[in-house]
Simulated assay, not measured.
Amino acid sequence: MKRIVIVGATSGIGREVARLFIQQGWRVGVAGRRQELLESIRNEAPGQVETEPIDVTAADAPERLYALIDKLGGMDIFFLSSGVGWYNPSLNPEVEMKTVETNVKGFTQMVDSAFHYFKQQGKGHIAVISSIAGTKGLGASPAYSATKRYQNTYIDALAQLARMNKIPIRFTDIRPGFVSTDLLKNQSFPLQLKPEKVACQIEKALLKKKRRVIIDWKYNLLVFFWRFIPLWIWERLPIHT
């Protein structure tokens, strides 16, 4: 039986992806900060699901990840769905640093731990949710945009590192547009996607081992065209939500 570990599974996209893989008959390890929500997922399929409370920014996060893998009996796919972001045009320093702590420190800690596990195992698949926001800096969300660019680049670097060392690790960089989750609660970003729809596309991308995927077609077009916008024009665009 195939095994997937999902970090950030207590709500939103992560939870929907967990449900889909449970339906597919996989063994699923779910992690997040809220124990009661993890237990509610396990109760849906007690024979298939293992849980572990993990705060990706905590020093014991790698240890807890390995404990979850042991409970599961191994890991074939590591899927990181954990992340934060805020609309922050006032540039509140606390908001910016919280974003960096989770999306850079927490991201790096968890992805590196999965990389080391798969290196020892001799194979594996690392998938992460980044964002189309990493393509261009959004003035309303500076730290979020920058940390997502970091994630895009980090996965590219790890993919190269794996090839340099002849380690058969697959990578999938999932870049959704704006999704209607708690992350965007009370914010009016345009073209918001339903998490259920996004999860279905993520499941297909993981099973097909796609290297990079933008969700959905509307955002594919958007990202394609805005790459051609000169910097001097982009900086003058009044992008508000």
Rank of each mutant, 00 (worst) to 15 (best):
W232E: 08
F118D: 07
I6V: 15
T153Y: 03
I233T: 11
Y219S: 02
T147I: 09
E52I: 00
Y144E: 07
D173K: 06
I54G: 04
G47H: 06
H240I: 15
R64C: 04
Y150G: 05
D70V: 12
I229E: 08
I233N: 08
E44A: 14
T172E: 12
V100H: 03
R19D: 13
E16M: 02
M110L: 13
G14C: 07
K98C: 10
A114S: 04
N165H: 10
G73P: 07
S81W: 06
Y219Q: 06
V17A: 03
E235P: 00
P195H: 02
V223F: 06
M97C: 08
E96H: 08
H125A: 04
L183V: 11
Y150A: 02
L193H: 09
I169A: 00
K197W: 08
T181Q: 05
K204S: 15
K119A: 10
E235T: 08
G8A: 00
V84D: 02
G139I: 09
V223Y: 01
I126C: 05
N103H: 00
S141K: 11
G137S: 07
D156Y: 07
E36C: 02
F224S: 12
H125N: 03
L237V: 14
S11I: 07
D216I: 06
G106F: 01
N220I: 13
A114D: 06
S141V: 13
E50A: 06
